[in-house]
Simulated assay, not measured.
Amino acid sequence: MSALLEMDGLSSAYGQSQVLWDVELTLARGQVMALIGRNGVGKTTLLHTIMGTRPVTGGTIRFDGQDITALPAHKRSRAGIGFVPQGRHVFPQLTVMENLETGLSALTGRGGGAAKVPPHIFDLFPKLYDIRARAAGFLSGGEQQQLAIGRALAGEPSLLLLDEPTEGIQPNVVQQIEAALVHVRDQLGMTVLVVEQYLDFVWRFADRYCAMQNGRIIRQGAIAEESAKDVAHLVQI
């Protein structure tokens, strides 16, 4: 498989405090990778650096063969990177449908014309169709998470970044999210990088894992070859 995302010596900082140190990571097309590690080791910062919402202080990022290190976030979105941040960040005053439609800007930015919300989003998350006229601020945490994922998928990205998608979510919604990610991997060929503390969740559908510690990648491997329990012990999660 060819590489979709390549990071070479990637570093990032908050002011004078460096958070990422010389990250080397490659994601193949169609691959699902779990990014794991304790809280505060740089996982979220890495996703934001890939998305362009945190500055790169060293190294390069290549996406689909192009150097995107200096691209602003909205151009990375148009290039095909979708992001579901921790905490969901839906627009509370907008309806569910209006929130989903905001995700279409990435598609129209790629010349998609008068885009509409793809019907498969409602197949993945039927509840969103039922509540499509409801303001997002009145949704439960699980409904907001489905909406945030649906909004990212509306832009038809080739790479989907997810930060803690199961955090604070009830088990039945976690199952729906898992089924949705399996679908976009198998049916849409989407590449996924997911930060997750619930290892049993990602071990059911991811291909590889990457463990971080103190802003560096310390271990990578194939999920089929190592158990979640063993990896959690080795990287002290």
Rank of each mutant, 00 (worst) to 15 (best):
G109A: 08
V96G: 03
N214Y: 12
E24P: 00
A224E: 13
L107S: 04
M1G: 12
Y209L: 00
G65K: 10
T57N: 13
Q145V: 02
E164D: 02
A115E: 03
V194E: 11
Q170F: 01
L162V: 01
P119I: 00
G189E: 08
G155W: 03
Q220F: 00
A179W: 02
V192I: 14
V84W: 13
V84G: 09
E178S: 01
L128H: 07
E164Q: 02
Q197H: 05
K116E: 15
K75E: 13
E225L: 11
Q66K: 14
K229D: 15
A34P: 04
I131Y: 05
A222I: 01
V231C: 11
G221Y: 08
L46G: 08
V84K: 11
D123N: 10
R219H: 06
V184A: 01
H120F: 15
L71R: 12
G65E: 07
D230G: 03
L188R: 10
Q146P: 00
I149S: 01
A13G: 00
E196F: 03
I237A: 14
R185P: 03
D186M: 01
Q18H: 08
G137D: 04
N172E: 06
N172V: 13
M190Y: 01
L47K: 10
C210H: 03
L94Y: 10
W21C: 00
D130T: 13
L27E: 09
L181N: 03
V192P: 01
D163P: 02
A222F: 00
M190Q: 11
G37W: 02
Q16R: 14
L20N: 11
A206G: 03
A114W: 04
Q66R: 15
A152R: 02
G9C: 01
A232D: 07
S105K: 13
R110D: 09
S2N: 14
A206E: 02
V182M: 09
D123I: 01
P126C: 05
L25Q: 09
V19P: 11
L35Y: 04
A224R: 12
V32S: 10
V117F: 04
Q86F: 05
P171K: 04
D186Q: 15
G40W: 06
Q31K: 07
T49P: 00
L47Q: 12
L47I: 10
M33I: 09
L128V: 08
V194Y: 11
D186A: 13
K229W: 12
D207Q: 06
I223R: 01
H120I: 00
W203N: 03
G80Y: 05
D22K: 12
M212L: 13
G142Y: 06
R134P: 03
E6V: 14
I237F: 11
I121T: 09
R134Q: 15
H74S: 02
A224K: 13
A152V: 02
N39P: 06
L47A: 05
D230M: 10
I223V: 12
V202N: 04
V184E: 03
R88H: 12
G141R: 00
R54I: 00
L107F: 14
Q175N: 05
M212W: 05
R132E: 12
R216I: 02
V96W: 09
I121D: 02
L4A: 11
V195I: 10
A3P: 01
F122N: 06
Q66L: 11
T53F: 13
L160V: 11
S140N: 07
D207R: 02
Q66D: 14
K43H: 07
I81Y: 09
A136Q: 04
Q66F: 03
D207N: 08
R216F: 05
G111Q: 12
N99R: 08
H183R: 05
M7N: 08
